[in-house]
């Protein structure tokens, strides 16, 4: 099951009902375009949350849902997403637009990378970033990840593959 991590401003843990509601609202907006959105269908968000929860059971690691420790507001989702058909996990991050620009994604990603390395031996996670996603590219670099290659999938979608290292840019 999803453990709970605590950072200066955030609590990271399993998907609670408030997270599901916030995520459902998020995927209905254009802000979700780098996650395959937008989608008006609320079942998409439910299936996504269920799959992310299920990954913990199947693999023993997964993504964490972010909560503002002061207000209790759902903030986003961060962690290694690794569906059954993917060759390796994708260390991914989503922070809802209202919480952008405060370094919260960085704070959460740093905590999750440290946890993954320490508790699961995942010391060289990759992040697959859309080259048009400027915020995400900036975060990968700020986390000290190194640009490994440009990947063009079978479907012709381009991703920049970043490789995270241990104890860099702490």
């Amino acid at each position: 099951m999803t453990p709970t991590l605590t950072t200066e401003r955030l609590s990271l843990g399993p998907c609670a009902e408030a997270h599901l509601d916030a995520f459902t609202a998020f995927v209905a907006t254009e802000a979700s375009r780098f996650l395959g959105g937008p989608s008006e269908d609320p079942t998409d968000a439910w299936w996504s949350c269920a799959a992310h929860a299920g990954q913990w059971t199947l693999r023993g690691y997964g993504t964490f849902w972010l909560t503002d420790r002061v207000t209790g507001a759902p903030v986003g989702r961060v962690g290694p997403w690794h569906p059954g058909w993917a060759a390796e996990p994708d260390m991914s991050w989503v922070v809802y637009p209202a919480f952008e620009g405060r370094g919260l994604a960085h704070e959460a990603a740093r905590a999750v990378l440290d946890w993954a390395a320490r508790e699961r031996g995942l010391t060289a996670l990759a992040s697959f970033v859309n080259p048009d996603n400027a915020r995400s590219l900036a975060l990968a670099r700020r986390l000290g990840a190194r640009e490994e290659r440009r990947s063009v999938s079978r479907d012709g979608e381009t991703a920049i593959v970043f490789r995270h290292g241990r104890a860099e840019a702490a």
Partner: peptide, 14 residues
């Protein structure tokens, strides 16, 4: 899929 249209110049070059 891989042969869909509507791509940017950068995507086609990639």
């Amino acid at each position: 899929g891989g042969y869909r249209g509507g791509r940017s110049d950068a995507e086609v070059a990639a």
